[in-house]
Design a protein around this nucleic acid. Structure first.
Ligand code: MN
Ligand code: MN
Ligand code: ZN
Ligand code: ZN
Lengths: 141, 141
DNA sequence: TATGCTAATGCTAATCATTCTCATTTGTAA
DNA sequence: TTACAAATGAGAATGATTAGCATTAGCATA
């Protein structure tokens, strides 16, 4: 299933900005990108897309289920390709590196915590903030 | 240990705005308050404190360890009294009601997840978004 | 392929929460 | 009291995100 198909099945017409944004995520150089990251990367590659359009497209993709949005510590939110697999994140407070993880026990206990208190769980956000160790950590890229 | 002592031991001089903000949290009517919540409550009770001061004081209290800051879904952040006990939150997407919980297993598995990947855990944020059931849930207070 | 309509785009201006500036006021310790 | 640094308040500034609107571009049709 290619980009074009993705867009169509999401009821979005296939436009240049949308294709560019989508392929940026599918190229896979970096998984977690903010609106501005996307905007700058497009500019850098000679593709002119307005910042407002980037924001719009990212949100449409999220609604359509193509992307997932996260709010790491700090102000700006980041998006990543939705590949069906839910996972949570560990974020390095020094260099910003993000590592993904999934823990079935944690997931299950969250369901339980909600159920026990009479809540119908909708979703959750779990971010672990930490420092990665010397070799991998490049303080402030 | 009273408010005044709290402030002093935090190296903050005892000013009217600080005492008012602190006692608001200690009065305990509502645990989780945004800067604007605090601002409005003070106005309502006839205490004039500038919004900028509210923001400053809240942040100072957080630095001092008197308050803890959270970022529930949405834009504005909320504060609550730091009573030493760490806990996570379930937030109702309909009415905004917040319930607190602590799950030792979740805490432990987070430590493990970080350690296994070579991170020194600093802290974490876990929010469960859900809908509370009929009796308790008052859609949009 | 040309035409037309609607959705999409790209500016710019507007929001909104939060922070900053700076003149004025307060807490405090001598 | 006085003196002075620290704190406050009002409003401007910021930064991310969204809204408004005139212009353009998909795409279906003739
Ligand atoms: Mn991820
Ligand atoms: Mn709480
Ligand atoms: Zn790092
Ligand atoms: Zn509710």
């Amino acid at each position: 299933m290619n980009e074009l198909t993705h867009l169509k099945s999401a009821g979005l017409k296939s436009t240049l900005p949308r294709l560019k944004v989508l392929s940026l995520f599918e190229s896979g150089s970096e998984r977690h990108l903010s609106a501005e990251d996307v905007y700058k990367k497009l500019l850098a590659s000679g593709d002119d897309v307005g910042l407002a359009t980037v924001y719009r497209v990212l949100n449409q993709f999220e609604q359509a289920g193509l992307l997932v949005k996260h709010h790491f510590e700090g102000d700006k939110s980041v998006f990543e390709l939705n590949q069906g697999d839910h996972h949570d994140h560990i974020v390095c407070l020094q260099c910003g590196r993000v590592e993904e993880f999934y823990d079935a026990t944690i997931e299950q206990r969250q369901k339980k915590a909600a159920a026990e208190r009479g809540f119908e769980l909708h979703d959750h956000s779990l971010y672990i903030y930490a420092n990665c160790v010397k070799p991998k950590c490049q303080f402030r890229n």
